[in-house]
Design a protein around this nucleic acid. Sequence first.
DNA 1: TACTTTTGTATCGCGAACGATATAAATAAC
DNA 2: GTTATTTATATCGTTCGCGATACAAAAGTA
Lengths: 151, 151
Amino acid sequence: MKEEFRLDNQLCFRLYTASRLLTQAYNPLLSAHGLTYPQYLVLLVLWENDAQPVNDIAKRLCLETNTVTPLVQRMEKQGIVTRAKGTNDARQIIVSLTDKGQQLQTALTDVPFAVGGAIACKSLTPETVPALFQTLDDVIAQLKKSLKRDT
Amino acid sequence: MKEEFRLDNQLCFRLYTASRLLTQAYNPLLSAHGLTYPQYLVLLVLWENDAQPVNDIAKRLCLETNTVTPLVQRMEKQGIVTRAKGTNDARQIIVSLTDKGQQLQTALTDVPFAVGGAIACKSLTPETVPALFQTLDDVIAQLKKSLKRDT
DNA sequence: TACTTTTGTATCGCGAACGATATAAATAAC
DNA sequence: GTTATTTATATCGTTCGCGATACAAAAGTA
């Protein structure tokens, strides 16, 4: 059994597991408002900048448009966002928050704190978190480059 | 716009993105052999310990059995593993590697190196990686505790 | 022994993710 | 100005991931 194949030596498995479990921690908080985690991400994007085309949302979340399109369509059905043809570019679909979508920000105020509580551990301190963020950002940037190259 | 809602302050979004992109880096290497990343994880588990019940595989990967069952069924169809009723406990399904499943380890020898190359960046050094692993393991352990509590 | 509870898999349904493909609008090339 | 190419979404098919549920085998209890 080669060392490189040991599950405990895999960065990807750790990221995969941490991501899934942390998403699960969000779940009860979000589903109480009829939301999924990816839908919450779309809300975070729109709360920062309302009225964006599908493509911009996808780029911001590093997702493909064929993931974002049905995601946003479901959110439209729930009355959280509206989808309207772009005026400058008729190909674009501009996604905007409805009042309900705006108000969700207030309803979800305590979500970041609740999740922060669920994840709090001695490895996550005001001193270590910035380094962790930096590392993950670096890895993400590097992967974007690598994945772009062999397209 | 509250600071806690900024996408750039979210640990979960970073983990989610890093996990997805790193999985994408595995994809061309694995799909060349008809494998997906979760199937590769099952292989890693079985290469470490062959002939395990579905439940043990699921626990090792922090997945539910209703995710692993169909995953393993697909691998059985591909002739990578076999599924047999347990002898001690007739409820268990013991998943074992076929010859083809064993041989895949040789065929995939260079996967860890190729992925290592795709992800190599200045934030990942022999000095920093252990700390990163430790932090992620800590976060995962903490989340397991938190998620178990409110069941 | 009979009855209840727990445990191990499996099935179902839905929402992601994403590769492949389609379509219309915008842009570039000629 | 017509044709070719690129760009922005959308649709389709497959595989996860997981909550809810079903069911049989095992373990515990009366």
